[in-house]
Each structure stands twice: as structure tokens, then as C-alpha cells.
């Protein structure tokens, strides 16, 4: 049986797709057969972040409508043979997704894959609801600012009441907090909420902090998940996150302002 992870936030632009791509690649690199599904029907992005946009023939909606088989629609990553992408449809909208259709696709994937990552669209409407409905674990991506925190809080409420696990009274979804676009300097100067501020409101265990980093934009533009950029701080942060998710004990990083000495300048990528 696969473990289904939803990457969600409520708010848009906080780094859900970046996180989905990075975590999926991280898990696949460790040898786990991983599928990542783009639930953002109509606003397909995941294929760009993973650099497979030219190879999209069939999509998620085609599979749900039984116009294509799952194997026809799944795109195998060229860098890592254990990673598969199920892209969203760009020409349809979220109403094309049905609960039964999503359930069937996830069930079929579960037989073959170890991890299934559902990249949720922003909002709390149909697309986001279906992305989280069948999840076992939830990665809540939050930026350190009040509106993002409130939207994440709303999403956590929905996870605990409207998911399949909540509805049939199973063990609740495991929730993890990922704080992205974090800048310790700006936290220090009081412009940004700190890790503690965010955790005080959300009270969800912290899986990791992803620092604000130029490498994320570069990675997105080039179609290489940032986790592959081992020199970058954001890439390392995602590696830590994958390791912690798999049960390794790694101390939290990127929370304090780092003094950059000569050593740091030489060996730390920006």
C-alpha cells in the first residue's frame, strides 16, 4: 500500500508545487517508487517545475474519463527512474475531477507505488478538497506572514473534518508544517513572523524551514527540482525535510541568522 501525501496550504504562491516536486524527487532518489499528481486542473504547473512539459500527451482528466490508461498518462522522469508524474489538464477546470475518479486513480497507483504525492491547488474548493480527501499525511506549506498562516489554519481545520479519514473515523491525517520563504534576517528585524509565532498558532510539528533563496526561482525556470541543487540552501533544506519525514533525526537549520565567514562564503552556495 502506498502512502498518500497531500501538499497543501490554502493560499497560493507559497511553494506547494516547488515542495511537491522537491519532495517527490527526494523520495524517488532514495529508491522509493513515487508518483506525483498535479491536482491544479486548468493551471498546470508541475510539469514545468519538473521539466517534462514537452512530454505531456495524456493527463489526469483523461484518465478519470477513461480516455487513456494510467500508464499512458504517467510520465517517467528522465533523471530518476523511480519518479513518475501525472500532469493536470490545462484545457479543463476543477469540475472535471470526480471523487470516484480520483479514488480509482489513487487505488490503481497504490498497487505499484510506495509514495503518492498530491500537489493541491490553492483555495479550499473542489480541487483542493479532492487533493486532500484521500491523504494519509499532509504537508502544510506556509509562508511566515499572517494571511498565509490563517489560510493554513483553515486548511488544517478542513483536513481534520472533511477528509476521508475524518469521515469514516479512522486515525486522523498526520500533519506536518513546512515553513517556506523564510528569512532569518527579516524575522530578526521584525518584518516577518518567526518559526515560534507560526507554530504557536498552527500547533503542528515542524518538518522543516526552507529559506528564501534565489536557487528556487532558478530551479523552477530550468525545470530541475531545487532538491537536485545540492549546493543551495533550499536544496539542502528539502533534503533535510525528506530525511525527517522518513524518520531520520536531523537538527533544524536555516532558523537563525548565519554569520558568513570566509569558510561559509567558500562552501555555502547561495
Amino acid at each position: 500500500m502506498a502512502r498518500i501525501i497531500v501538499v497543501t496550504s490554502g493560499k497560493g504562491g507559497v511553494g506547494k508545487t516547488t515542495t511537491s516536486a522537491a519532495v517527490a524527487m527526494g523520495l524517488a532518489k532514495r529508491g522509493f517508487k513515487t508518483a506525483v499528481i498535479d491536482f491544479d486542473v486548468g493551471l498546470r504547473n508541475l510539469d514545468l517545475i519538473l521539466g517534462c512539459e514537452r512530454r505531456v500527451v495524456y493527463d489526469f482528466v483523461n484518465v478519470i474519463n477513461q480516455e487513456a490508461t494510467l500508464n499512458q498518462a504517467l510520465i517517467r522522469d528522465k533523471r530518476c527512474s523511480d519518479l513518475y508524474i501525472l500532469p493536470a489538464s490545462q484545457t479543463r477546470d476543477k469540475d472535471a475531477l470526480t471523487q470516484e475518479g480520483v479514488a480509482t486513480v489513487l487505488e490503481e497507483l497504490s498497487r505499484e507505488f510506495k509514495y503518492i504525492i498530491c500537489d493541491s491547488p490553492a483555495g479550499i474548493e473542489r480541487g483542493a478538497h479532492l487533493a486532500m480527501y484521500f491523504a494519509d499525511d499532509a504537508f502544510i506549506v506556509t509562508n511566515p506572514e499572517v494571511s498565509s498562516v490563517r489560510d493554513s489554519d483553515r486548511m488544517l481545520g478542513i483536513l481534520s473534518s472533511k477528509s476521508r479519514r475524518a469521515e469514516i473515523g479512522e486515525e486522523p491525517i498526520h500533519e506536518f508544517l513546512l515553513l517556506s520563504r523564510y528569512s532569518p534576517e527579516r524575522v530578526k528585524s521584525g518584518e516577518m513572523l518567526s518559526v515560534n509565532d507560526v507554530q504557536e498558532i498552527l500547533s503542528v510539528p515542524l518538518l522543516g524551514v526552507i529559506p528564501e533563496s534565489k536557487s528556487v526561482l532558478n530551479a523552477s525556470n530550468s525545470g530541475n527540482p531545487v532538491i537536485l541543487d545540492e549546493q543551495s540552501d533550499a536544496g539542502q533544506a528539502y533534503q533535510d525535510i525528506v530525511a525527517r519525514y522518513l524518520g531520520e533525526n536531523r537538527p533544524q537549520r536555516f532558523i537563525e541568522v548565519e554569520k558568513k565567514g570566509l569558510f561559509g562564503k567558500l562552501f555555502r552556495g547561495k
Binding site: R150, D151, D153, R154, L156, G157, I158, S160, S161, S203
Partner: peptide, 8 residues
């Protein structure tokens, strides 16, 4: 006993 979240 659980947090009451935004929207609840």
C-alpha cells in the same frame, strides 16, 4: 481539546 481553527 484540539485547537479550534480558522473557519470552524
Amino acid at each position: 481539546t484540539a485547537p479550534v481553527r480558522s473557519g470552524q
